[in-house]
Nucleic acid binder design. Structure first.
Length: 271
DNA sequence: AGGTTGACCTGGACGC
DNA sequence: TGCGTCCAGGTCAACC
């Protein structure tokens, strides 16, 4: 489901609703692949903890919690393709495919729901907190951005999707930013000119900023912490538009596979 | 070592 | 109606 703008929308929404709350009880579903840390460790770490803040790192939602005095930990939620993190009153029935429930002392619940089970839950207790691999695209400088793809032979689209290079960009925003920068997705990352790199960074940051403002893209089932859909899908120029005409030049948009992912581009506008 | 591919899951859309 | 096929916002392990 969710790329940087969707994850940020969810993280901000959950933060606004549960910051400062205390977790009374934790339930987990027992579906092994959902849990990257042992379920018992997740339950022990979170039970009785206070939620300090909820934020985004790459595509991961990080819940910073405190137990006792200065004993901090992080609850990491990766939504995968279909994961949702919802805040609901306890009396609202649990949706199907619920895999974790944090019951708050005020009677509400933070629920992790994930039909396809590509999402992952874990806890970190390491000092310094969780930063994740990869560079943050919304704030990366021109200089640093230009160095990321140096010497890379893989297609620029595949490089944008590689979370250890740049974190947070997924299939929608890779295609949308390449279109806006006028760059062919198959071009080798290391072969982009300085001017193209500058255009790509600008396009990527503009697309991400706009998408965050609009609450993300709701392609099929994405919703925020309140179950509300985003609106950036109305701004999509290429994603999901294979065979339709380019909004800039009218040419038929092409569909190919790059890095194992469906990729849509305009053969005239993107060289 | 960098790059590519298939596996992991469920459900919705589509065609017959 | 029902069945089969294909496709989906993402990662990883296993290969070349």
């Amino acid at each position: 489901m969710p790329e940087l703008p969707e994850v940020e929308t969810v993280a901000n929404g959950v933060d606004a609703r549960v910051r400062g709350q205390k977790i009374a009880r934790v339930w987990t579903s027992g579906k092994p692949q959902t849990f990257k840390s042992a379920e018992s460790e997740i339950v022990e770490t979170l039970t009785g903890a206070k939620i300090e803040k909820v934020r985004r790192v790459g595509k991961t939602i990080v819940m910073d919690v405190v137990r006792g005095k200065a004993h901090t930990a992080q609850f990491l939620v990766h939504l995968g393709m279909t994961g949702r993190l919802l805040v609901s009153k306890a009396e609202v029935p649990l949706p199907p495919h619920t895999h974790a429930v944090l019951s708050l002392t005020d009677g509400r619940e933070v629920r992790f729901v994930d039909p396809r089970r590509f999402g992952r839950l874990s806890v970190e207790t390491a000092e310094g907190g969780y930063a994740g691999p990869g560079v943050e695209p919304t704030t990366v400088s021109v200089e640093e951005f230009a160095t990321l793809f140096k010497g890379r032979k893989l297609a620029i689209k595949a490089a944008l999707l590689n979370q250890s290079i740049l974190h947070g960009v997924g299939n929608i925003y890779a295609d949308e930013s390449l279109f806006r920068a006028g760059i062919r997705p198959t071009k080798q990352g290391g072969k982009l000119t300085r001017v193209e790199l500058e255009r790509l960074r600008t396009a990527l940051q503009q697309v991400l900023k706009k998408a965050i403002e609009l609450g993300g893209s709701s392609v099929s089932d994405y919703v925020d912490a309140d179950g509300v859909r985003g609106f950036f899908q109305q701004e999509h120029k290429v994603y999901g538009r294979a065979g339709e005409s380019c909004k800039d030049c009218g040419a038929a948009l092409k569909k190919i596979v790059v890095g194992g992912r469906t990729t849509i581009y305009c053969p005239k506008c993107q060289r």
